[in-house]
Design a protein around this nucleic acid. Sequence first.
DNA 1: TATGAATGAGCATTCATTCAT
DNA 2: AATGAATGAATGCTCATTCAT
Lengths: 198, 198, 198, 198
Amino acid sequence: MAIIVDKVQKRKDIALSCKEIFFQNGINDLTISQIAKSAGVGKGTIYEYFKNKEDIIFEIVNILIKERNILIKEKLDALSTTKEKVKLFSRFFYSDEDVELRQLYKEFISITLLNPDSEMLSFQTACSSEYYLWFESIIAEGIARGELKENAKEFTKGLFSVGEGMFIKSSVTHIVDDLEKELHQFYDSMFTMLEIQK
Amino acid sequence: MAIIVDKVQKRKDIALSCKEIFFQNGINDLTISQIAKSAGVGKGTIYEYFKNKEDIIFEIVNILIKERNILIKEKLDALSTTKEKVKLFSRFFYSDEDVELRQLYKEFISITLLNPDSEMLSFQTACSSEYYLWFESIIAEGIARGELKENAKEFTKGLFSVGEGMFIKSSVTHIVDDLEKELHQFYDSMFTMLEIQK
Amino acid sequence: MAIIVDKVQKRKDIALSCKEIFFQNGINDLTISQIAKSAGVGKGTIYEYFKNKEDIIFEIVNILIKERNILIKEKLDALSTTKEKVKLFSRFFYSDEDVELRQLYKEFISITLLNPDSEMLSFQTACSSEYYLWFESIIAEGIARGELKENAKEFTKGLFSVGEGMFIKSSVTHIVDDLEKELHQFYDSMFTMLEIQK
Amino acid sequence: MAIIVDKVQKRKDIALSCKEIFFQNGINDLTISQIAKSAGVGKGTIYEYFKNKEDIIFEIVNILIKERNILIKEKLDALSTTKEKVKLFSRFFYSDEDVELRQLYKEFISITLLNPDSEMLSFQTACSSEYYLWFESIIAEGIARGELKENAKEFTKGLFSVGEGMFIKSSVTHIVDDLEKELHQFYDSMFTMLEIQK
DNA sequence: TATGAATGAGCATTCATTCAT
DNA sequence: AATGAATGAATGCTCATTCAT
């Protein structure tokens, strides 16, 4: 009988094999030829495992995000206050360790803003939703634990979005110079108002 | 001297002549040939007045923004409360009347995220700064008039950025469904905390 | 021996299994993958029974032609005059019931014109010869029965080819508008000259 | 001012420059790169003068046909009888001097049978119509001059198409072995019946 | 000052066929 | 006998910018 291949695993193998050039060249300059070469397979083989170029990118990003999510989860568990947890979320936008993934995120946003096709939107929604649900539960938990006032819930989406907003502004203008400082300052001020003083 | 004035005027003429196709086709599908044709000049002539394609786009966007700013200023003056003024700013992200300019804004962000060259950043900074300074003074004035608490100042950049963040999220994911509602809700909650109750 | 019979039968089974997609997609868009899928076998298995893709098409067309020939033969026997019999042959080029086979015929001609390799020519010759021999005997019989003049024999190949010629012209130009009418008119005029008046 | 180029002439120049490779490689294997190279211009320049690859082919074929038509017209004028004139038309299908154009004609038919898009049909119609009108007037003239019987008119389309039909049959099968002989024989038999005996 | 002819790099994708198992 | 994973060649078209006139 024929060779049986773990399609799922091979997808990952191919995707991971080009992680480096993906980071180096960015999404737009990544060619199928490069991917095939770095994966050590023929170009045709790529299309046995991926529907198209976009599909490969989705797979890579998916893997990277999942890797990162595990780390985040560990770190979140290690933190005790809601403020620290919220701040941890915003670290992605400025920390040195996320510089590569952040660059991809920019390209992703860029592509989606230009071509908001449904697959792209769905993929981005899937990625973001997981984050947002975590974020929501952190705020809810903060209230439940008597750490935050009841109305903190009303600020959930705003607290979640403000990082994104400042990130974009800092990426496309000089208005936000020191993103890290600005974010900390904002969250500090917010939590001063939202935390129940003991 | 007269010649210089003509140059400035002709820049505007050329830029304005293609405003329509600019809105219709978007930035990426706007070709120099189209611009030349709609302006009634040769392709070479375009390069007598503009350094490159980007330069033309800057000119068009500049004109459009200035047009819009005049309108905004009028509307701001007609409003009495700080909350209303702040909300007016965020209207850009969802109002029907700004749909075309908003589309361009998306494309602009998209381009800048990919190619954050200094000219692009400077231009975007120039555009945003003016807005931000207005925004800053509105908050400051709100405090001065005893409408807002002193610490409202600490939220200026956050209040300014949250619209951007939700806008991006609503553009690239399905997480923010009803942008208008979400924004109003956030600002209402914020101002409940920031306004001095009488 | 039994195995050989199985091979022949399996060829037919595979060929017939994709008759539908063959009609739907045409020759060029029919892929080996589709054939294998619709036949419920692996791609490699196809090559156990067929030399190559062309071979599969030959098999399908062969089956379809044989099916059609039986029908034609029945209809021919039911007709009494030579003119009617000749006209029946040309029905293929315009009748609604042959629309699918006609489409394949076009594709077949198209392929053969581009790649007149010997196998293709032989196959087409085999298909056409049977028809032509019928046609020839019909004319001969018409003469023998005193229905047609002796010299009618000289027009055999012409009468046989004119349908093909008009069909091609109607397929690649707008010159022949109403193929059915033109053919009838031509045959009527011809038979007026060839029939022995009583 | 700018350089003024005779666009019409340059189209012809480019088209003619690749006449040779056109004959050698056939339509399908003719690449834009080859055309550009043989014309001594950049690939982009090709698209200043032609809408697409098909457009180039149309131009080449157009030129070749016009060249040939002039020759045909001269030869027609030199012939005295209608039979000779009609036979001259069919020479295209077998004569040695038309071997290259005939090859193109095959490819053209092949392409059009597969993709009968309107532009292709229109082009082919334009080419064929001119021929057909000539053919029609030759028959009409033959009748007017008392050379042919009145009813010869009814055979015009048939006489025109039979050459095409036999040509296709000889191209895709072995049924018509000696196309030249068969055609002559058919036309001889036809004219025996259509000519007014003196 | 105005023109417009010329340029050329760059890239995803399909699918018949093979052959190791 | 049956399979299905792997392969890789091959190509049209766009458009910002330049520069000779």
